[in-house]
Design a binder for these strands. Structure first.
Lengths: 255, 255
DNA sequence: CGTTTAGTTGAGCATGCTCAACGGTCGTGG
DNA sequence: CCACGACCGTTGAGCATGCTCAACTAAACG
């Protein structure tokens, strides 16, 4: 599928393409194409060689990994997010698998083109470095979240982050199925249920995908959100932390 | 302390400086200086603003993080490693604290200089991107290691990695105190002890810092090392995965 | 109207942590 | 030179967080 003008416009407004000049944009996007995938499509398996940078424009994608018959979710991505950028820069194999969770629309940019753009234009290359650095810091936040907090604390902070992002009202709508949310928070669906019940003490009530807060103060006392762990602007949109370097927070669209 | 020629030589042979031309090297290193720190010196606390890129030339450094009176180790670095590169690129605050474990020698490169070098020379900027991408992938490996393996499996794989790096003999010397090793592997010292005992079944015997293997095959059957998790060339030197992008494996010095 | 799937709840279990005690080693000071 | 103290490492007992397995409900879909 060729790239329509409207799509090109969307991509330009994204991430490291935003400030690129036209010539560099053309170089980096040379050979890029847009593709739609149904739900539950494997885009990439661990160990596959990576020829394209993926940019998720619609839908959602799970990044995961396995070993010895175990599997784990590393991130859930929502538009607009790039993924496997690091493998593209290093021309190496994927360390994570990528599977669509819903019907998704993905822009595929040839790795060669991206690397050429980076090597020809230092300003563009720097913007990619910023994106990579943002990904890195997102991973660090994710590790801290998992190593320093128990499952209830992770859920509480997730809810507060969602609340902030959905406008600070006293009711939010969970953007994922609960099973997906459980994977995102690093627990089983059973334990997510139990974590929600524990939070009923703190004024959290759940009805399907709707979550209401009757006492945010006491919830915050449990959650103790920290700017060194939680990224209230970009966290969930891309739990790997990718999506938008930290200085580009303001322009996020809604998850 | 000014930079001696011998030190400059060491730095040039490192990481993204290796292929930089002289002019770019001078730009990126402008204002850099070498500093020695005693053991247990805090170089950086979480939340501090980051003005320098740190390059560890001698000694060792622990990167950690805390929340609500809990603390955790994120990585142990050994020479030659850069750290907090991502924060430097984004001009943002540190997400991890850094503390010397031994007397250490560290090159401090002003962030301004590094960023200027990146923006003026695309090839240099690309090399920094490669370094960042290597860091990112190291973190991904680390997360997979922790989420997919239990503590005994992590130890078994650590031992096999050390063995490979120390020449494949049937005896190795642990490069860290056991308490440090425990932190590195994400467990308590008590559980490291127990993990070692569990591995005596698999032909692993310990005497102080010396570890001997009498049956590597059966140990490997338990450990199941994977190139998608373990980096037999760079892993321990820098558990955050940083240290040398994956294409620069061959030139690692010994840990 | 049956079947499937998401979610919840309970019981039991496992991995890993805390706390405490103990042994060995090393360095210091009497 | 020996005695003491500090610290590393080990071992045991008990506990907590989170997982597995199973049963059950409710809603969605044919």
């Amino acid at each position: 599928m060729p790239i329509k003008n409207t799509d090109a416009e969307r991509v330009r407004n994204v991430s490291f393409f935003r400030n690129a000049d036209d010539a560099t944009f053309d170089t980096a996007m040379n050979g890029a194409f847009l593709q739609r995938f149904p739900a539950n499509t494997t885009l990439l398996m661990e160990g596959d060689s990576v020829d394209f940078l993926y940019i998720l424009l619609e839908g959602s994608v799970e990044l995961g990994a396995g070993w010895k018959s175990k599997d784990t979710t590393l991130a859930i991505l929502r538009p607009v997010s790039t993924f496997i950028l690091a493998a593209v820069v290093l021309e190496s194999d994927a360390l994570m698998s990528a599977v669509t969770l819903e019907r998704s629309e993905i822009l595929m940019v040839p790795g060669d083109s991206l690397r050429r753009g980076m090597k020809e234009n230092a300003v563009f290359g720097f913007a990619v470095s910023e994106e990579l650095a943002g990904c890195y810091r997102g991973l660090v936040r994710s590790i801290k979240n998992h190593k320093l907090r128990d499952s209830t604390e992770r859920l509480a902070n997730y809810l507060l982050t969602q609340r902030a992002r959905q406008g600070g009202q006293d009711e939010i709508v969970l953007p994922h199925e609960k099973r997906v949310l459980a994977a995102l928070l690093g627990m089983t669906p059973e334990n997510l249920s139990r974590a929600f019940s524990k939070l009923s003490d703190k004024g959290v009530s759940v009805d399907g995908a709707r979550v209401a807060f009757s006492n945010v103060t006491v919830l915050e006392r449990l959650a103790r959100p920290s700017p060194l762990i939680d990224n209230h602007y970009a966290q969930d949109r891309n739990t790997l932390g990718k999506a938008y370097t930290e200085r580009q927070q303001g322009v996020l669209d809604q998850s």
